[in-house]
Computed example of a mutant assay.
Amino acid sequence: MTDLLAVYDAHLRTAAEVHGVPDVQRRGPLWIGRVGGGRVFVTYRELDDPAAHVSEIVSLLAEDETIRHAEWKTRTHDEAPGLTEALTAAGFTPEPPESVMLGEASTLIDASAPDGVTVRRLTGSDDIRAALEMQDAVFGGAPMVDTMLPTLLAPQADGAVEVWGAEVNGRIVSAGRIDPIPGTPFAGIWGGATLPEFRRRGIYRALTAARVRSAMARGVQWIHADCTDYSRPILERAGLVKITETVPWVWQREE
């Protein structure tokens, strides 16, 4: 039986998490990605001295006032004594935990769109903007449309990231991305969101199936996702397995 947690740690952390990010820095075991809009993302595989590494990020935030928002991802299965205490002392606050899901791509493809729903890949700027605005309305927090739109519209040499949406009467009611990781048989499904009034109709599952079928045509064999409690049962029914939890710790510069 495949050790899914070992697969995750070996292939889906650090470099895999920041591929496609235009500006990535290394500070010891830390991988720091600048994703635009004054936002940085911090991840790691192992930490020998968690408090010291948090201090490095605190110094970076103090030195660079263009950084407005930072996110540091922790995993519940990691051994990093003192990390959460150091993050709290540094002014980071935890968001709700998300389930890390992993499984074979072929388990997710058997779902079709309900009547009256069109699922398609979104390529035009207007469609992608509409999808991001819908996701912002669902998730709240810092607007993704401000930070992600330029990245999703920028030319990609390998065409890695695909944005997909589900429409009802021309309105995007569900959307998400799929991100094949170059040089690996893995892809991540991200940003999945559905407007509340269109949930529990099989739309999100159909959207996921369409994304995965597209990725499999490009050689993807494994799918992973960080998901909310709403999405997790859908992905579990499709065959993905929860292997750990991740907690995004966020910091916001005071205005």
Score class of each variant (00 low, 15 high):
150 P>F: 01
170 G>H: 00
190 W>F: 13
143 P>Q: 07
125 S>A: 15
159 G>Q: 12
158 D>A: 15
151 T>V: 13
126 D>M: 05
167 E>G: 10
150 P>H: 07
158 D>G: 15
179 D>C: 15
180 P>H: 06
192 G>V: 11
122 L>W: 01
148 M>D: 12
186 F>P: 01
150 P>C: 10
153 L>A: 12
192 G>H: 08
172 I>N: 02
176 G>P: 08
184 T>A: 10
139 F>Q: 14
168 V>A: 03
137 A>W: 10
118 T>M: 09
129 R>H: 00
184 T>F: 04
142 A>H: 10
191 G>N: 05
128 I>K: 08
178 I>H: 07
144 M>G: 03
180 P>N: 07
176 G>F: 06
130 A>Y: 00
149 L>R: 00
127 D>C: 07
175 A>G: 14
166 A>S: 12
141 G>Q: 11
141 G>A: 09
143 P>T: 05
128 I>F: 06
127 D>K: 02
165 G>D: 03
164 W>L: 07
190 W>C: 02
120 R>Y: 02
185 P>I: 03
156 Q>E: 15
181 I>E: 08
166 A>M: 05
124 G>V: 04
157 A>G: 14
115 D>P: 00
158 D>L: 15
157 A>S: 13
155 P>S: 06
117 V>Q: 03
191 G>Y: 07
140 G>D: 14
156 Q>D: 15
128 I>N: 01
192 G>F: 06
171 R>P: 01
182 P>K: 06
170 G>W: 00
129 R>N: 01
156 Q>K: 14
155 P>T: 05
158 D>H: 14
174 S>D: 10
154 A>M: 11
120 R>H: 05
147 T>G: 07
180 P>T: 05
169 N>C: 05
157 A>Q: 13
138 V>L: 07
160 A>F: 04
123 T>Y: 00
142 A>M: 09
148 M>L: 14
165 G>T: 04
172 I>V: 10
153 L>N: 09
122 L>D: 02
189 I>T: 14
167 E>C: 13
139 F>Y: 15
150 P>Q: 12
166 A>H: 00
134 M>W: 03
180 P>G: 05
126 D>G: 10
142 A>F: 11
183 G>F: 05
164 W>E: 03
165 G>P: 02
131 A>W: 00
162 E>P: 06
153 L>G: 08
169 N>I: 01
182 P>F: 02
128 I>D: 01
154 A>Y: 00
129 R>D: 02
183 G>L: 01
187 A>Y: 10
189 I>P: 01
170 G>T: 03
184 T>M: 08
179 D>T: 15
145 V>N: 11
165 G>I: 00
153 L>I: 09
167 E>Y: 08
171 R>E: 15
115 D>A: 12
166 A>C: 03
